[in-house]
Design a binder for these strands. Structure first.
Lengths: 149, 149
DNA sequence: GCACCAATGTTGGTCCGACCAACGTACTCC
DNA sequence: GGAGTACGTTGGTCGGACCAACATTGGTGC
């Protein structure tokens, strides 16, 4: 206990703690994949779980705003991981659909993400990891998932 | 439960969850103080708890790298919240010390930060908040607090 | 005493993610 | 048909985590 880590005032702030943990996460992530791959992962995961979505819907479900969704989708499209086609019933919307390659990419990214998880949560046993997951979920569920706009 | 919130793959990633919670924290913070005030708060809190420190030490304890510490300290100095003086025993170092005004500023920021806390963790009862605090602390303690460099 | 290496503070720059503002297009509702 | 709204897109700001390089200063081996 010679190193108290961080000042008590900060240790009591969940916003500070989560921020630091998230930073550690991005640091570990950087070792295993390009950083931007995290957004790609989120978008691909949402599409695989919910089926095809419009860009705006994607943003709402993931808490990303539409500007950023645009960039991510464009990048994924360029790499052949998904396809954009305009919704026939509402021609404002772009329906976004994962391709075969995108699906493979998603599963590859998932494996790397799980490795990051293990590294990040190395100090917690399975029960504690589940507790943490549940508590964070509870916090997230209590706030709208939407972006700031 | 018509809105599952986020895809399962993401809900299982602590790095994603903490990232989202941290984002909510910054969003709530923005409503109560300038965003940059968070770094100021961290630095002031460290100085108040540990006593005067060099900039490099500050960075190590808080997990900030020295470039950023420089900027924060400069800003706080310009506002009269702390003082820089070169360490007489090692003239490479700047000893950083909080001023009276800085101390008042710290306590003001702390109150706002606690309000953000309450808003962020509204869904958790006191016991759950303590659990969350403890789990995040455990994770943070298991990793060196130092910046990436 | 001198040469080398390490640490500190500083400057200047990159990158990513969360934002905001504005625009043209397309839909809805009345 | 017109007003208001949603969508996608472009172009920008800002904070924070990084990296590279430099001058100054300390420490160490010799």
């Amino acid at each position: 206990m010679t190193d108290p880590g961080a000042p008590a005032l900060l240790r009591n702030l969940a916003s500070w703690q989560t921020g630091r943990v998230a930073t550690l996460g991005t640091r570990f992530t950087a070792a295993r994949m390009p950083l931007e791959a995290r957004s790609d992962f989120a978008v691909l995961a949402a599409l695989e779980e919910y089926g095809d979505l419009s860009q705006a819907e994607l943003g709402r479900r993931l808490g990303l705003d539409r500007n950023n969704v645009n960039g991510i989708v464009t990048r994924l499209e360029e790499h052949g991981h998904l396809e954009r086609r305009t919704d026939p019933v509402d021609r404002r919307r772009n329906i976004v659909a994962v391709t075969e390659a995108g699906s493979r990419h998603l599963h590859d990214l998932n494996e790397r993400a799980l490795a990051v998880q293990d590294e990040l949560l190395a100090a917690l046993d399975p029960g504690e990891r589940e507790q943490l997951r549940a508590l964070l979920s509870k916090v997230l569920d209590s706030h709208p998932a939407q972006p700031a706009s």
